[in-house]
Amino acid sequence: MAVGDHSDAQFDDPKQVLEFTVGDERYCVVLDSVAEIIDQQQSRSLPDAPPHVVGVMDYRGVTTTLVDTARLLGVESNPAASRVIVFDTGEEDDDVYGWLVDEVYRVTDLDPTDVDDAPFGDERTRGIVRTDDGLVVWVAPPTQR
């Protein structure tokens, strides 16, 4: 989403985002899409799962799909990644899933004037955020696992 481009959603006011790292890259997602941040749990692999799916884990009694976020976003994976950002879509068929990330960095306000068009990416890339300490890729979590 670019400055002045409001085709996906209204973005006139600052939003809070959660910044995280995957490999050497920094990303952010809108905070209201995040249910919780937890340490990685033991997971079980799934036969015939898409390549970006690590497996499933138990999260508060709910079977939760664990996603290799590095593979999903096309960056170098860290086998020692240990944090999971849990998303709860609230939809019956796609309730809870987690993104495996290296580190959760911080929660910050995202001002529309700090967002530029992404010169690359796919439907998940919403823009590039300019911060005091570098650039952060703003991504939308997938609505499907």
Rank of each mutant, 00 (worst) to 15 (best):
L73C: 07
V86G: 01
A35I: 03
Y105W: 11
A35Q: 07
Q40T: 10
Y27R: 07
V53A: 01
W99P: 02
R83N: 02
R106S: 15
P14L: 04
P14M: 06
D117C: 00
Y59I: 15
L110H: 05
D24I: 13
D48V: 10
L100R: 02
E19R: 12
T69E: 03
P79V: 01
D24L: 14
L73T: 04
T64H: 03
V54Q: 06
D114I: 00
V75Q: 05
I38S: 05
T69Q: 02
V34L: 01
V75R: 06
D111I: 00
D117Q: 07
D93K: 11
R106K: 15
V54R: 08
D32E: 08
P79A: 04
T65K: 08
V22S: 05
A80P: 04
V84D: 02
P14C: 08
A9Q: 10
G55L: 11
Y27Q: 09
D12V: 12
T113F: 03
L46I: 11
L72Q: 12
Y97W: 03
Q40P: 07
D109I: 00
N78L: 03
E76D: 15
I38E: 05
G4P: 14
D58A: 15
D8M: 14
A49W: 02
T65V: 13
E92N: 12
D68R: 11
P50E: 09
G4C: 15
A9R: 11
L72W: 15
D39C: 01
V96D: 05
